[in-house]
């Protein structure tokens, strides 16, 4: 016997999961399940689409309609699923490499379209599945197997990128602040439009060791000590926010949703043709 949530929402035969000890992918995945459970969405109507990478293995563990696609393309597959059957609740599980690197083009266009899918990006700064290479969100000067002397790249502010591209719900949570993360995902799913939740995650095996971040628990504590809620941050001076992670809801606005707009267009055509 396992916990209620595992019994109800997971494919137990696929567990234990393949993630390394202390990897927070399980925490973020369970946060998604809690959100779905809280929203009481029927399992038959939920489609989880994932790309390629550690985080994207989550779809195999979940007892929904699950689609484990090709690297970087989850959002494009999800667009097809949602547009074909708008009644489905479509959630995309992706990683920072999967989404911000190879998947960037599909990410910004889905945001531009404001199609009603919820994208949860597990952000652990590296490509875990392939052994710890730097991802586009790795903090500058941090180390990875492909940045042995520290990454010289500037990292994406993927939330700003989402806002710039037109996403109408954008939030950032962390694997430490689980209760908040569940709420952010809940609001993302119930939001009608393109929802993006960046979940700061930890990779003790590659990112943690190579950058001497300590044990999994230490890495979670680091998230706790270095995250500031957006409302508090608003009252703080910029230098105080230096190097800190702002968490909470950045954008939550209503805008025409793609599949509905198409339906309205079809309605208009039918009227004009009569």
């Amino acid at each position: 016997m396992a916990s209620r949530l595992v019994e109800e929402y997971f494919r137990k035969e696929t567990l234990p999961n393949i993630w390394c000890p202390g990897c927070s992918n399980g925490i973020v995945t369970m946060a998604i399940v809690r959100a779905i459970d809280n929203l009481k969405i029927g399992k038959d109507k939920v489609v989880v689409v994932s790309g390629i990478g550690c985080s994207s293995r989550a779809s195999g563990y979940l007892d929904f309609n699950t689609l484990h696609t090709t690297h970087g393309r989850a959002i494009a597959f999800a667009t097809g699923v949602k547009f074909a059957n708008p009644e489905l609740t479509v959630i995309v599980i992706t990683g920072d490499g999967d989404n911000a690197a190879i998947g960037g083009n599909h990410f910004i266009h889905a945001a531009r379209r404001n199609i009603d899918i919820t994208v949860v990006m597990y952000n652990n700064h590296i490509y875990g599945m392939t052994g710890g290479q730097a991802s586009p969100t790795i903090p500058r000067y941090d180390k990875a197997t492909t940045a042995p002397y520290g990454s010289i790249d500037r990292d994406f502010d993927i939330c700003k990128l989402a806002i710039g591209a037109g996403a109408t719900y954008v939030a950032r949570g962390t694997a430490y602040h689980v209760q908040q993360l569940v709420k952010l995902i809940e609001k993302g799913i119930s939001h009608k439009g393109f929802s993006f939740i960046k979940a700061m995650s930890i990779c003790p095996t590659y990112y943690g060791r190579r950058n001497k971040k300590g044990s999994p628990a230490d890495m979670l504590k680091w998230l706790k000590d270095n995250s500031i809620d957006i409302n508090k941050a608003a009252k703080m001076k910029p230098e105080e926010l230096e190097g800190k992670i702002i968490i909470g809801e950045f954008v939550n606005i209503e805008a025409p949703e793609y599949t509905e707009e198409y339906q309205k267009m079809v309605e208009r055509l039918k009227v004009s043709v009569k």
Partner: peptide
């Protein structure tokens, strides 16, 4: 639109192929 169908212009051919697979799985 006149036959209850759906058309979408995607951002590239990779996305187009992905979208039709998603749509096919959605019925």
């Amino acid at each position: 639109p006149f036959v209850g169908g759906k058309f979408i212009q995607m951002e590239d051919e990779i996305a187009s192929m992905a979208a039709i697979i998603g749509a096919s799985l959605a019925g």
